[in-house]
Amino acid sequence: MSLSNLIQNWQMFRTRRPYEDQYKDAPYKWAMVIDLDTCIGCNACTVACYAENNLAVVGKERFGKGQAMHWIRIERYWGEGEEMKTDFPERGAQYLPMLCQQCEAAPCEPVCPVGATHHSADGLNTQVYNRCVGSRYCSANCPYKVRYFNWWNYPERAWPNPLELQLNPDVTVRSKGVMEKCTFCMQRLRAGMDKAKTDGRILADGEVLTACAQACPTSAITFGNLADKKSKVARMWKKQQVDLAKNVQDKTEEGIRGYRVLEELNTYPSIVYLERLRNFAA
């Protein structure tokens, strides 16, 4: 069976991803656009993520040891390039919401010894908790360092009664020793996609949002289905001239703001950031 499968679908098995029009016939490819000019750094997305995805609060000591579990973090940079050139941050701070980039060629995927992380049909970088043995190779290989390991058995510690009543039953509470990461709120997508399938349609644009995109007060995070060319996210990608399957984007015009972080590492992320703007005349 397997051998005949191997021979029959040889072409598919030998296809190297990502390739152009990879999602042409697929119903879904989830992607995001984050506008850094409207991100105000308010942390609403972070807390929303804690609430939606049963993230453990680790406490001061463990946070200090670098064992925090925030799937999305707001980074705040100063200055330009190597150092701050002025005494004061004259152009404000630089906020960067950093979450799993759901890379199309994710460096974490090929190195997982047990295949706990792989690429799903709708273009997500999955993490199957109960398959994970905790080798942490994925985290070692992730250039963005957005994978978080359960260093402690948080279920025992992080939700004293009755805090555990808040836990989302659609999301597993991860035990010690497994890796976890942003899932683009898979449980929401799953429920939405199932409902849509029952109705015999595909999800409408904006019908399902990730927790961060839904909370974001400035709507800096746009989430949607890149395979649906009419969706807002697809239009934005197109307008920003970012091609999913390219690692060097050809921009035909000046002033187009879309870029992907660490694109030069050939990770093909699914998140496009829009450059922050500053009125340098002010």
């Binding site: 030998r14 060629a105 090929p110 295949g115």
Partner: peptide
């Protein structure tokens, strides 16, 4: 399990 950047086989 498809893996980003590599063929399945």
């Amino acid at each position: 399990q498809s893996r980003g950047g590599r063929p399945i086989v």
